[in-house]
């Protein structure tokens, strides 16, 4: 048990983070205290700074510390390609892959009747504005291969049809995947999307 109220409060807060529970939070806090100069102080300073400056990019919805994020500011990324993703985590995943050199648009979710998410709750009007003002030639719908993700993709496609070239990510066998372990839906999708060799 921690002997200090602040430390207990810190453990409680840490335990609310994804992937952490009370035990791991206690271990993490103890580690931070032991590495006070190396970890705790710089972490506290950075958290304070990020808490003061972190915000959504006004253009694309990415999380950054300025009004406009680095990707939107980078002229080299004005390729005319706009990749639409559901969430900031998806944008970061695409950036990790390093395969896309255009710009992004974060919707902030998917349409969901169950959760009451309607088109007005997503950043679709802003997407339509961007297509008109940024000379976008292609919109890549990089939404999750889930029922909600694809429903949202079709909804966006309906609204952009005829204005711009629309593409979506391929669906099928993942790299390193073995057919024997794939579900029938994935195999069907892969077969439909087969290509000439």
């Amino acid at each position: 048990m921690s002997a200090n109220r602040d430390i207990d409060a810190l453990i409680d807060l840490m335990a609310r983070l994804p992937g952490l529970g009370p035990r791991s939070a206690r271990r993490a806090v103890l580690h931070l205290i032991r590495k006070r100069a190396l970890l705790l102080t710089p972490l506290a300073d950075l958290m304070q700074s990020v808490a003061a400056t972190a915000r959504e990019c006004l253009n694309c919805g990415n999380v950054c510390t300025a009004d406009i994020c680095d990707i939107c500011r980078d002229d080299r990324r004005a390729t005319g390609e706009l990749c639409v993703v559901e969430d900031v985590a998806d944008l970061w995943a695409m950036e990790r892959a390093g395969a896309f050199r255009g710009r992004y648009h974060v919707l902030g979710g998917t349409l969901s009747a169950l959760d009451g998410v309607t088109p007005d709750d997503l950043r679709i009007p802003r997407l339509i504005d961007r297509i008109a003002t940024e000379e976008v030639g292609e919109v890549i719908l990089a939404l999750n291969a889930t029922v909600d993700g694809q429903t949202t993709a079709h909804y966006i496609a309906d609204h952009l049809q005829g204005r711009v070239r629309l593409t979506s990510l391929a669906q099928g066998v993942p790299i390193g995947g073995e057919l024997d372990y794939l579900d029938d839906g994935t195999i069907s999708a892969a077969l439909r999307a087969r290509k000439d060799i």
């Binding site: 291969a145 579900d183 839906g185 994935t186 195999i187 069907s188």
Partner: peptide
């Protein structure tokens, strides 16, 4: 799974 057929 029926999602594969539906997403087609």
């Amino acid at each position: 799974s029926r999602a594969g057929a539906a997403m087609g």
